[in-house]
Nucleic acid binder design. Structure first.
Length: 490
RNA sequence: GGCGCCAUCGCCAAGUGGUAAGGCAGAGGUCUGCAAAACCUCUAUCCCCGGUUCGAAUCCGGGUGGCGCCUCCA
């Protein structure tokens, strides 16, 4: 397995510190507002990393934190006249609502900053003792000058960084680059007692301490959005390594941004869509599929049209699973595929499925290339669909091939967190969502269909088509099948 | 200003030395009362200019265009 390591600037063969075990930490969210699609990408991407590592046989300890104390949370709490705690709880609940909808698995551990303050204080004390940090008026800063490798993750020379510092420099800091490990609290703000007076931890120290607490001094993988490389992750490296003297992280992984019209989606630009907004329009699995249809390090341009296209692609895969289900029709199929006795079509199909198993893993082993993996899934689906279309008779041999195909497609889909719903359930949910979004009455649609079918029986094509046009104007598309007429929304 | 990333069919998107996956959209076809769905077939030489190589979308140099980080940020 190869993974692109930000620290190395290239893909590297992945070998965890302890054979067969992986310790992985991903920066979670600061809970002061609803999450947007950018947060969704990060969560989904690392969810797939987690799933795939487990699929590959690793025993994974996955830690993702909640930053539940921070300036923005405090500001929000003051605005609303409630406690910081209340704000945090509210948005943690909202976060789970979004993540559950997207099929993001719960990490092994989800530590909250406020529950690890004593450990953070101890870490800061250790840094002070070793001469890597200094206290001023109740604040404690990391002394970047005391740690020469500073800048190695983001590849920035120290002097350049210093001259590039643009914000008003705090004269109490030895270097403009020094960052807060501990912040003295203002009256009325949440605070914890410390050797430097009442205060709260800085943002960077939270992740370092929580990561090391649950995963040890060296993490196999540490992930987050590209925007965290500097300064957040750079600072984490400095804090951790200055204290422990050991490498903090073996592989740094960073996901690319979600853009709107080529521009980064962000709170400050105001060009964001919350996950909840998007899920009012599309099935959550469509959003997940959309996010995984691009390589995780590439920028991804979000638009309604792009998501609609993703919906069409996902629908194709679910449609195939649905048709396989119909072909199997609840019948038993041999567990073993009798490869030697297959017809040409069945053999080609079975070979495509077997090939898929390897191609999928090759793609995923190459830095989690989900876009390529999905391509393989589609190509295989086409072969299976073709086999199905040729009217493969329901012989035990053919059924065995089909069942194995469905199993494989669903199984690999599961590695991506996709295709786990029964197809009818998926299509039902999509339809239900669309019906609600447009305020249609399904009973009325059914009545129209019945009217049309009466006309069709009488071969009154004019009237039948008129009814169909009427429904089409509402966005309802009819499909006449052997089992009757079904409808969906375009 | 510093550092870095990107540029592949109408759109989206894989592919990092051996002759362009996949999806969407489009065209033609099979099927259908007609449609829809499904299936089949078709559509690129990879931003420009130089170089390295038997061979480059893939490596190097130079352009052009876009983006990101350097400040809270997934």
């Amino acid at each position: 397995m190869k993974i692109f390591n930000t620290l190395a600037g290239s893909k590297e063969a992945f070998t965890p510190l302890k054979q067969g075990r992986v310790g992985m930490y991903v920066c979670g969210v600061t809970v002061y507002d609803r999450c947007h699609v950018g947060h969704a990408r990060s969560a989904v991407v690392f969810d797939v990393v987690y799933r795939y590592l487990r699929h590959s046989g690793y025993d994974v300890t996955y830690v993702r934190n909640f930053t539940d104390i921070d300036d923005k949370i405090i500001r929000r709490a003051n605005e609303e006249g409630v406690s910081a705690r209340e704000i945090a709880e509210r948005y943690i609940a909202a976060f789970y609502e979004d993540m559950d909808a997207l099929g993001v698995l719960r990490p092994t551990r989800e530590p909250r900053a406020t529950e690890h303050v004593p450990e953070m204080i101890a870490h800061v004390e250790a840094l002070v003792e070793r001469g890597h940090a200094y206290a001023v008026d109740g604040d404690v800063y990391f002394d970047v000058g005391s740690y020469p490798p500073y800048g190695k993750l983001s590849r920035r020379p120290l002097d350049e960084l210093a001259s590039g510092a643009r914000v008003d420099v705090d004269p109490r800091k030895r270097s403009p680059l020094d960052f807060a490990l501990w912040k003295a609290s203002k009256p009325g703000e949440p605070s914890w007692p410390s050797p430097w007076g009442p205060g709260r931890p800085g943002w960077h120290i939270e992740c370092t301490v929580m990561g090391q607490k649950y995963l040890g001094p060296t993490l196999d993988i540490h992930g987050g959005g590209l925007d965290l490389v500097f300064p957040h992750h750079e600072n984490e490296v400095a804090q951790a390594e200055a204290a422990s003297g050991e490498p903090f992280v073996r592989v740094w992984m960073h996901n690319g941004f979600v853009n709107i019209n080529q521009e980064k989606m962000s709170k400050s630009l105001g060009n964001f869509f919350t996950i909840r907004d998007v899920l009012r329009q599309v099935h959550p699995e469509v959003l997940r599929f959309f996010l995984l249809s691009h390589h995780y390090r590439s920028p991804l341009d979000y638009s309604e049209g792009a998501v609609r296209e993703a919906a069409a692609g996902l629908e194709r895969l679910y449609g195939l699973l649905g048709r396989i289900g119909e072909a199997l029709d609840g019948r038993d199929a041999p567990a073993q595929v009798p490869v030697a006795e297959l017809s040409n079509g069945a053999r080609a199909t079975h070979e495509a499925v077997l090939g898929l198993l390897f191609q999928f893993e090759d793609a995923m082993n190459d830095d989690f290339n989900t876009a390529e993996a999905l391509g393989h899934l589609h190509r295989c689906a086409r072969q299976v669909g073709s086999f199905l279309h040729e009217g493969c008779e329901p012989s035990p041999k053919n059924l065995a091939v089909l069942r194995y195909a469905a199993q494989s497609v669903r199984g690999l889909g599961g590695v991506l967190g996709l295709l786990q719903a029964p197809p009818e359930a998926y299509f039902g949910a999509v339809k239900q969502g669309a019906v609600e979004a447009r305020g249609l009455d399904p009973a009325e649609v059914e009545a129209k269909i019945a009217e049309r079918n009466r006309a069709r029986k009488e071969k009154d094509w004019m009237r039948a088509d008129a009814v169909r046009d009427e429904l089409a104007a509402l966005g309802v598309v009819l499909e006449d099948g052997p089992a009757g007429t079904t409808w969906k929304l375009k």
